[in-house]
Amino acid sequence: MRRWKILCASAVALLMQLVPRLVLAGGEGLDTPEALERKVPLEGLSGINLFFARAYNENLWLYAIYCTVLMAVVGVVIAFGTDIILKAMGMEVEKIEHKE
């Protein structure tokens, strides 16, 4: 136990020594304040990519609603879809019981 404590404390101390230098060394420099105002170029886009890119450029509220609703719909479709497929394959989906 004592050995583990010493080992952990040493590892944390070593890491703390390295943090400032490494944070500066690892800077991405890509996600800058200018990039926050970025617009998606629409040239060459079609179908679903164009649809999302247009919503993204024109109205972020709309884009956020699309994203949230779409993920919910895809989640529900997958949840019920896999149930149907597994049942058709003869694998009943069991509920996991938790015992106290």
């Binding site: 993920m71 919910a72 989640g75 529900v76 997958i78 949840a79 019920f80 509920k95």
Partner: peptide
């Protein structure tokens, strides 16, 4: 978010 809906249904 999508996965949590699937997990909620499965569990």
């Amino acid at each position: 978010f999508g996965k949590s809906i699937v997990a909620t249904r499965k569990h």
